Amino acid sequence: MDGQSGCDNGLVKLLPEEERRSFTERLERVYLPQGHQIARAGKPLESVYFLSSGIGSVLAVSDSGLKAEAGMFGREGFAPTASSVGANTNPYDIVIQVEGFAHRLPVVLFQEIVAENRVFADLLSRYLYVFAAQVAYTALANAAFKIDQRLARWLLMCHDRLVTDNMPITHQFISFMLAVRRPSVTTALHMLEGEGLIRSDRGRVVLRDRPGLEEYSAGSYGQPEHEYRVLLQARHVQP
Rank of each mutant, 00 (worst) to 15 (best):
L45T: 10
L14K: 06
V119I: 08
Y221H: 13
G65S: 09
A234E: 11
S5H: 07
V58P: 01
T187G: 05
E28W: 10
F50R: 01
G194S: 04
T186H: 05
Y127W: 01
E112D: 14
R229I: 06
S83C: 02
D201V: 04
G100D: 09
G6K: 08
L128I: 05
S125Y: 01
I96C: 15
A41F: 00
L213W: 01
S52W: 03
L51Q: 14
K146H: 11
A152V: 03
G203L: 11
F101D: 03
S200G: 10
L124G: 01
S125H: 09
R26L: 12
S125A: 13
V230M: 13
F145Q: 11
Q34T: 13
L128V: 03
F120A: 08
E193T: 08
D8M: 09
L123T: 05
P16T: 06
Q97T: 15
L232W: 08
L213V: 01
D63M: 01
E69T: 06
F101H: 04
N117V: 04
E69Y: 00
V185M: 05
G35A: 12
E46V: 02
G71P: 01
Y216R: 15
K43A: 06
N117T: 04
S83L: 04
P168H: 06
G56M: 04
A121N: 00
D93A: 14
G35R: 14
R118H: 08
A70T: 03
P224M: 12
L213D: 02
D8N: 14
S22R: 14
Y127S: 00
D2Q: 07
L66G: 07
G219R: 13
G100S: 12
Y137T: 07
H236P: 00
P224C: 06
S52H: 04
Y216M: 12
L140E: 11
I198L: 07
D122P: 00
D93G: 12
D2P: 02
A143N: 09
S57W: 03
S5Q: 09
G35W: 09
S22C: 07
L123G: 02
V119C: 02
A102L: 10
R202V: 10
L156M: 05
D160C: 05
G196F: 06
P239A: 11
N166S: 10
A144F: 13
F173S: 15
I169G: 04
V30N: 04
S57H: 09
M177S: 15
L109I: 10
A139D: 12
P239M: 11
V61I: 06
L156P: 02
C7K: 05
V237D: 10
F73C: 12
L32R: 14
D63R: 12
L189A: 05
D165K: 03
V114N: 09
G71Y: 06
Q172H: 14
Y137F: 10
A152S: 09
I94C: 05
V95C: 13
K67L: 10
A60S: 15
S184A: 14
E76M: 06
M1E: 09
Y129D: 02
R199M: 08
S175D: 00
E215Q: 15
P91I: 10
S62F: 03
I38Q: 14
V108F: 07
R182P: 01
I38V: 15
K13E: 00
A60M: 11
A39Q: 03
M191D: 04
E25M: 05
S52M: 07
G71I: 04
N142R: 15
Q223G: 00
S84R: 06
L15N: 08
D2A: 10
T164S: 15
T89K: 02
